[in-house]
Design a protein around this nucleic acid. Structure first.
Lengths: 254, 254
DNA sequence: TACGCTGAATGATATATATCAACATGTCAT
DNA sequence: ATGACATGTTGATATATATCATTCAGCGTA
């Protein structure tokens, strides 16, 4: 079922050569401090000052330009990634198409299931907007999980929430038709990602399609229909949901 | 995106009334011993004899007839379920249709993401064949995770493997067309569930459809095509894959 | 300004898939 | 054996969706 198509996928992003990543890694380090930063990062609240300092001292900061790849599905996974600014996406490279699992905004982490299995990434991550991120050595993280049960529970809780989110997503993708799926994605964007109503769509139409599991053309057509029905407006990159009630209705009737 | 449709779903299984479950729970208790049984249950290998006895003393055994519901999506989740004989399915009740996430055979566990979130089930479970299962109080389980880091790691590893499996499944469901999806399910059945090549299909055609995210009629039609092309045979409930290579090909070309 | 490039939009067409309806088969209790 | 009921099978049809081709708009660069 699952095939790592490294060669194929590398060529899909010809702009970012591996060396560039390492250059960026060395560019800026330790520019701020975990103890200050973690206020929004819920799972870190279970850590003591000493433990936070452990993470802080082993971390380094990286910046990515929009479109650049953060890591590739199939590659080793030595770091735990925490996005501190900008917007990133994590996506599975499937059979010709990509499926975006979720968008990652500050302060959120990217940790894949591979960390505890074979230390490989099971999905790719890329910057959608210009991003900064902190990388922390996975082994530091794993040690904390072994030594601090509260932190372990927070971690498991986090993984569980992600899993629940994925369930919703699978049902949306497999049992709703296009209108309902686009409605779901629009709610996801306005409620969970941009968190405001007239919001700037910083993702492309292709990303919108990859989030809702359909072709770019279909996604565009449905946006147009929603516009014509007065459910939303799009001016440039600014989208506003005018009739959330009707949109909810569309989401629920599939 | 996510709606718990309890009323709708109860009526979908008119045969099993809630009282029946409790009657069965009281029928047989402590018929065997975790220390003997756990040989196949990998995550328990991290537990000491004392810890196993903790689980053993708080567990009780239940049996379910084929078709009976083990628990319902949306209900509280006080127990951790370990299937000790027979075959069960876990499935999400979506918009009209069900999606089977996986089949559970001995010795495997059913633990949902709700345990660490809101103590609710996020999917339903039902017996496909007659089943016996052990129920263990979730709090006993959670305590062991707090106190035994090895066990915690095994648990996280387990959850991770399940997550990886789900990724494959999502890609199959959203990016392959029907032939590829049915091929994937047939491999799943022969390699992971029944583990033999001429195998008895104890699941119904509807279950096959719910595993591959399509209508029952479409699933049947594709089985017929596979028969006509000599890829497999079906006699009664016995299915045999004759040309696994070609089936693999179909799986991979989507 | 003109050029070329990339992402977005639109229309025409092909096709995968669900739905509906009818029919067959098996199974169980009477 | 008989009927009733669930499950499986098949065919005809409708429809959701992808694909292909084309045009358009914005944007940086020569």
């Amino acid at each position: 079922m699952f095939n790592i198509n490294l060669t194929l996928s590398l060529s899909a992003f010809p702009k970012t050569r591996p060396e560039q990543l390492f250059l960026m890694v060395n560019k800026l380090q330790h520019s701020s401090n975990c103890a200050d930063c973690n206020c929004k990062a819920s799972i870190f609240k279970a850590l003591s000052a000493f433990e936070l300092e452990l993470i802080n001292s082993s971390r380094f900061q990286v910046s990515y330009k929009a479109g650049e790849i953060i890591f590739k599905q199939g590659t080793p996974s030595p770091y735990f990634v925490c996005v501190t600014s900008g917007l990133a996406k994590i996506y599975i490279e499937g059979y010709g198409k990509n499926l975006i699992l979720s968008l990652i905004k500050p302060v959120d982490y990217i940790f894949g299931p591979g960390i505890y299995v074979d230390n490989r990434h099971y999905y790719s991550a890329a910057a959608v907007e210009d991003c900064t991120a902190c990388l922390v050595d996975v082994s530091v993280f794993k040690n904390l999980i072994r030594e601090n049960p509260d932190f372990a529970e927070e971690f498991i809780k986090r993984v569980s929430l992600q899993s629940i989110f994925n369930f919703d997503q699978v049902i949306s993708l497999t049992q709703k038709q296009m209108h309902g799926r686009i409605a779901d994605v629009i709610f996801y964007l306005s409620d969970k990602i941009y968190c405001q109503n007239p919001f700037e769509m910083t993702i492309s139409r292709q990303d919108l399609a990859d989030l809702s599991g359909m072709s770019k053309e279909s996604a565009i057509r449905i946006l147009k229909e929603f516009k014509e029905e007065g459910i939303l407006t799009i001016a440039g990159n600014i989208m506003e949901v005018l009739n959330p009630k009707q949109l909810r209705q569309i989401s629920e009737t599939g």
